[in-house]
Nucleic acid binder design. Structure first.
Length: 414
RNA sequence: GGAGAGAUGCCCGAGUCGGCCAAAGGGGGUAGACUGUAAAUCUAUCGGCACAGCCUUCGGAGGUUCAAAUCCUCCUCUCUCCA
């Protein structure tokens, strides 16, 4: 099956209501993807040391391409990261130092290896700092700048939107730099396809245009829809912040819980986008309604966690989730704090213990939690903020605290 | 450089003849009810603490006053228009 159709079917490419693909610069790319092995790239920001769920769609896109035998290039914006892409932003982004970019890149590469196979040149990772930082301004203007019409640039959405709020010349140049990236990859790696988020459309088109002018060759672009949840929130945002893919930032258990709790309306879409399950399987799961949809959510959570954190971690997360929500017990992957035995022997106020466990940012917050009846020790509701927690509550050297329905913390007595 | 506008709690955003303002309203968060670890809805709550009281908040620093987010002075930053 042509990857193009796979991507289309799984929802990576937006379609009109009649099913024809949108956001593809030239439908010829479909035939090319079906008959040749090509090289395609997506650019990533090195602004953070870890990716989050919002980047996942791009990563999966590359993974699918690789599975179909194409060669993905991960372009890290070490050079452009020092400028900051104005697309889709309302304000100028903070700039990074080269050291920060390098450090982030190292970590990002590690993350990529879970989704993409970089062995034997099956995929490449490049840093545009390698060619951007050494650019000579005059030369660049003469060779590249002359191909760009300012009038034309001003009509691009990503620039136009910023005209209202203003953008600096530095940001204005971003489009040239990204176009130059594409040209560079085209020349050096025969990369003919650039993909990216919806907001990259303008930048991608201008890259294609540049390749046409300089090389007189065709290149292509595909963008995927900006992903929002059914409630309209940006994908991968949680109350606590981004849903990071790094296990140190978001534990596999929390990661699993995120997917386990997605809105009913999102389950079908997410199964197609964020798992490698067969579309037949996905279609079957999509039929699940009402209570049964929870089975589909479990599968989504398990598969998504497996891809990001490995099968073992996914199994653990699943088991512990079932335990916590079924039997009200805590498994090993539930967050844990330690406390010394003497403290418990003398008894400790419930509010103090919840605060120590991080189940409230302040004592006042804990107080409100307890007053609203949302705090539990083991399976008992905490009835007073100064309820003494002592050895009576210790089971197997452990006390299980719960805030609300979903937040467990184990207190281990040492 | 010249002329204006503005800076309020997590975000948006009211609030200026000075007190009743820890500050309307919305978003969002949290908890409870309902449920399916969903959505919608309803209820409570969302600065801190030794919590029926006290302390620290309305860009920053001073000042006027019994009393200031609200008045005065200076400073910082942002935006719009003109050159």
């Amino acid at each position: 099956m042509n990857v193009f159709d796979i991507l289309l079917e799984r929802g990576f490419i937006a379609t009109e209501s009649d099913g024809t693909p949108k956001q593809v610069t030239d439908i010829k790319i479909k035939e090319i993807l079906g008959t040749q092995k090509i090289t395609a790239y997506i650019g990533f920001d090195p602004t953070a040391s870890s990716f989050h769920a919002g980047n996942l769609i791009q990563i999966m896109l590359l993974a699918h391409l690789q599975r179909a035998g194409h060669r993905p290039i991960v372009l890290v914006g070490g050079g452009t990261g020092m400028v900051g892409d104005p697309s889709g932003k309302t304000e100028m982004r903070k700039m990074l130092t080269q050291e920060q970019v390098k450090a982030n890149m190292e970590k990002q590469k590690l993350q990529f290896t879970r989704y993409i196979d970089f062995s034997n040149g099956k995929a490449l990772m490049v840093n545009n700092a390698d060619w951007l930082l050494s650019l000579n301004y005059i030369e660049f203007l003469r060779n590249i700048g002359r191909h760009f019409s300012v009038n034309r640039m001003l009509t691009a959405d990503c620039i136009k939107n910023r005209l209202e709020t203003g953008l600096s010349f530095l940001e204005f140049n971003y489009m040239l730099l990204q176009s130059y990236d594409f040209l560079k990859l085209f020349q050096e790696h025969n990369c003919i396809l650039q993909m990216g988020g919806d907001d990259q459309w303008g930048n991608i088109c201008s890259g294609i245009e540049l390749i046409r002018r300089v090389e007189n060759k065709d290149a292509y672009g595909i963008t995927c829809p900006l992903l929002t949840t059914a409630t309209g929130a940006k994908m991968g945002k949680t109350e606590k912040g981004a849903l990071w893919l790094d296990a140190n930032l978001v534990s596999p258990y929390e990661y699993y819980q995120y997917w386990r709790n997605v809105d009913d309306r999102d389950v079908g879409r997410f199964l197609a986008l964020f798992t490698f399950l067969d579309m037949d399987e996905v279609r079957k799961l999509r039929e699940y309604k009402d209570n049964r949809i929870n089975e589909a959510k479990e599968i989504l959570a398990f598969e998504a966690t497996k891809i990001t954190h490995g099968e073992k971690a996914a199994l653990d997360a699943q088991q512990d989730s079932r335990k916590a929500f079924g039997a009200g017990e805590a498994g090993d992957s539930v967050p844990t704090i330690q406390i010394v035995r003497p403290k418990i022997q003398s008894g400790i106020d419930a509010s103090e213990l919840f605060y120590l466990a991080g189940l409230g940012k302040s004592k006042s917050e804990v107080r409100r939690l307890i007053q609203s009846g949302g705090a539990y020790v083991n399976r008992e509701t905490v009835t007073a903020i100064d309820m003494k927690i002592d050895e009576k509550f210790v089971e197997n050297d452990c006390i299980l605290l719960r805030a609300g329905k979903k937040n467990y913390v184990r207190v281990i007595i040492v």
